[in-house]
Every structure is written in structure tokens, then in C-alpha cells.
């Protein structure tokens, strides 16, 4: 008995977070899991009749004439979302890594100021910030007015309602999620390590590759996770900046719980997305621990 208590004591640290997530996330999620095997209710919600249609629907959809056919439209939507989320990760990394590195090199007081400067824009609602980008990007917007005013172009350049605008919007939304973890990892970067490396390799970029990047990698991984997963479900930037002409996973799920009134399908979509992401993360974590283990022993 005391042995058990002793063993439980070790788990006290993980207990509060685990409790919150198990009770207020896992339990609701169980409801969603059950929903995914039920039949859609007439006005949203579910009917308690078992059905696997929500899952078969992912690949085999009925057309307007009720003929079941192999349908790739949901796969297309999924790959589009994955592609957009990948671009968001790469864009955030390209912009965020140098910024995080630069901030980490500053004296401590300035470091904190810069970090807080990153979060200040977020005091403004995301919707509003995205609208401001519309004012910047559209045909009659700031950039085009500037270009035309300077005589650099006669016709406005179309920037709004393009895929580039979606990418820009997503990077804008998620780049802090990349900068902050990388900063947290780099902040402890020991100057002496770099000095030693410089003595050995005598090149800034070699040092970056062989010393700094490996040290930053836990931060980059954390940042990539924090950007990729939310970007996968993002719909504000695709809707507002992209024009909402192509569905994303986020808007597809959203639709099922609103106008489409197909909660089981929305639930099934969620289950599939979650499983895929979870499996990827677990494979990654196992792999990483194996590598670390090899390093330690």
C-alpha cells in the first residue's frame, strides 16, 4: 500500500494538467467519438442509431443522384490543408528563426522588451488584424496605392484573394508560436560553445549548422507543432484573405456542425484528423527518445 502511494507521489507533477485534460477534453472527446458512429439528427445533433456512414463518406460519397461513387474531394481538401499548413511552418521558420536568434543575443532587459513586443499585436482580435491586411493588400489598398502613386505600376497588382495571401495570413497568425519556443531553446546558447566552434571551424555559417541549429532543434520542433496543427484547422485567413473559394479542413468541419447539420460526419473527420496527427507525433516522440537515449549512454 505505502509502495503504491510512494509510486503515486512521483506523478503529482503531471496530475493537475492530466486531470484537466482527461476530464474536460478526453471525456468530451468520447462523446464526439460516439457521435461519429451515430446518425445525423434532423436539426443538428444526433440520433441514436448506429452507422458507419460518416467514415465511409470520407472516400465514398453519394452524388446528387444518390449513386455511391469513389470521391476524392475530401482527400483533395485534406491535402490542400496539409500543403497550406506546411507553407505556414516553413514561412514562420524562415522569419521566426532569425528573429528568435537575434532576440536571444540581446542583453537581458532588451530581450524581454522584444519578446513582449511580439505579443502586443495579439491584444487585438485576430479578425481585426486580418481585416487590416485586407486594407493593405486589396486592389485599392495601401500597397497598390503606394505603387501606383510612385508610378511603379499603372494597374493594381492582385494580391488579395490569392493563395499567397492565405500563406501570408497564416504566417502572420502563427509566427509567434514559432519564435517563442525557439527563443526559449536558444536563450541558454552558451557564448563559449560558439567561440569553441569558431576556433575549430572558423566560419559563422558552419557554426550555425553544427552548433546552433542542433541546440535550437527542440524549440524548432515545438514551434513546428504549434504552427502546423492549428494551421491545419485554420479558416479565418483562408476565408478572409483567400476569398473562401476553396474549402479547408477547418471550414469543412465547421460546416458540418453548422449549416450542414451533419454532426456525425464532423465528428468522424475530427477523429481521423486527430488520429493521423497523434500517430505522427507519437512516432516522432519515440524516434526522438531513441536518439536521445543513444546520445546519453
Amino acid at each position: 500500500m505505502s509502495d503504491l502511494l510512494e509510486r503515486l507521489r512521483h506523478y503529482i507533477g503531471v496530475l493537475p494538467a492530466t486531470f484537466m485534460i482527461v476530464v474536460f477534453m478526453l471525456a468530451p472527446l468520447t462523446i464526439i467519438f460516439v457521435y461519429s458512429f451515430l446518425t445525423p439528427g434532423d436539426y443538428g445533433g444526433v440520433k441514436f442509431e448506429f452507422s458507419t456512414e460518416a467514415y465511409t463518406q470520407l472516400l465514398f460519397q453519394k452524388n446528387l443522384f444518390d449513386e455511391v461513387e469513389f470521391d476524392t474531394s475530401y482527400l483533395t481538401i485534406a491535402f490542400r490543408s496539409i500543403w497550406v499548413a506546411t507553407v505556414a511552418v516553413l514561412g514562420s521558420l524562415a522569419l521566426g528563426f532569425p528573429a528568435a536568434y537575434y532576440i536571444a543575443q540581446q542583453p537581458e532587459s532588451r530581450r524581454n522588451t522584444l519578446l513582449l513586443l511580439i505579443t502586443i499585436p495579439f491584444w487585438t482580435n485576430l479578425l481585426i488584424r486580418t481585416y487590416c491586411w485586407i486594407l493593405v493588400l486589396r486592389d485599392t489598398g495601401l500597397i497598390n496605392n503606394l505603387l501606383i502613386g510612385l508610378g511603379l505600376t499603372d494597374e493594381p497588382i492582385t494580391m488579395l484573394y490569392t493563395e499567397g495571401a492565405i500563406a501570408l495570413g497564416l504566417v502572420y497568425t502563427y509566427v509567434p508560436f514559432m519564435v517563442l519556443p525557439i527563443y526559449a531553446a536558444l536563450e541558454r546558447l552558451d557564448k563559449r560553445l560558439i567561440e569553441a566552434s569558431r576556433d575549430l571551424y572558423a566560419n559563422r555559417w558552419t557554426t550555425l549548422r553544427h552548433v546552433t541549429l542542433p541546440l535550437a532543434s527542440p524549440g524548432i520542433v515545438a514551434g513546428a507543432i504549434l504552427v502546423f496543427i492549428p494551421a491545419l484547422g485554420a479558416f479565418i485567413a483562408p476565408d478572409l484573405l483567400g476569398g473562401g473559394k476553396k474549402l479547408m479542413l477547418g471550414s469543412l468541419v465547421q460546416l458540418q456542425f453548422s449549416a450542414a447539420r451533419d454532426w456525425p460526419f464532423g465528428s468522424a473527420l475530427t477523429m481521423v484528423i486527430m488520429s493521423v496527427v497523434l500517430i505522427c507525433l507519437l512516432l516522432f516522440a519515440v524516434n526522438q527518445r531513441r536518439n536521445e537515449g543513444g546520445f546519453q549512454h
Binding site: P40, D42, Q61, K62, N63, L64, S73, Y74, T76, I77, G244, K245, K246, L247, L252, L255, A259, A260, R261, D262
Partner: peptide, 18 residues
């Protein structure tokens, strides 16, 4: 609308924006 009609609307919408 009936559930059947809503379902058809969904199919139209998904086909439009897929």
C-alpha cells in the same frame, strides 16, 4: 428544410468549393 433537402444542399456546396 427536411434533412434530405439539407443533405442535397451540402453536396452542392461541397461540390462547389471542393
Amino acid at each position: 428544410c427536411s434533412p434530405k433537402a439539407v443533405e442535397l444542399q451540402n453536396r452542392v456546396w461541397t461540390a462547389l468549393l471542393k
